[in-house]
Design a binder for these strands. Sequence first.
DNA 1: CTTTGGATCGTCT
DNA 2: GACGATCCAAAGG
Length: 210
Amino acid sequence: MHREALAADALVVAPYLLNKVIVHGERAARIVEVEAYQGAEDPASHAYRGRTARNATMFGPPGLLYVYFTYGMHWCANVVCGPEGSARAVLLRAASPLEGLCAMRKARPRARAVEDLCNGPAKLCQALGITGAANGVDLLGDGELRLVSDGVEPPDEPAVGPRVGVAAGAELPWRFWVPGSPSVSRPSSSAPTMGTVDRSGRRRKAHSSR
DNA sequence: CTTTGGATCGTCT
DNA sequence: GACGATCCAAAGG
């Protein structure tokens, strides 16, 4: 991972981050779902209305981790991208556990299946132990938290769709995910990539109820 | 399987 | 004072 690759536009960096690995100490997971947020030009971005104490990290250089607190109980993590000051970022929505499964299960005792450990932006932070204390850390440095490549390339044709949980720009296909990954938070909201899809877009295997 | 509502608090208006 | 870039359990079909 080099910083220059993250200095591109969020719509370029987002699919580029698919299949990269987020590492926190002994824990590691492969990123399988992301969303692009376009700074001042994006009504859904925390930076839409300018710089505040909360979103200050987004205005920093590419490669920083922007962590925010929401719904009174959840942390979510973004990779800052674009040129410094552009306040663009990519939300890490879901990942596939690679290492440190024990620690992840300890952090998320409610999760049953492995694919449920990191299949959501807040679940991912919970499983990896990412909190507000990590806001502003450099993911390309030599700290506990790092963003690395293990050689697995992004998908040739990532699945795309509208972002989750945002009213503004609901028509924009700014969510990207690895087609067919069992760890994606919402496998499909429009076009199925594998098997059949029910009305709410959740995966469903023929004749089975899990 | 689907839908609903509760939890819970920092941030910005 | 209102409302989230969410998650989960419980209740209803």
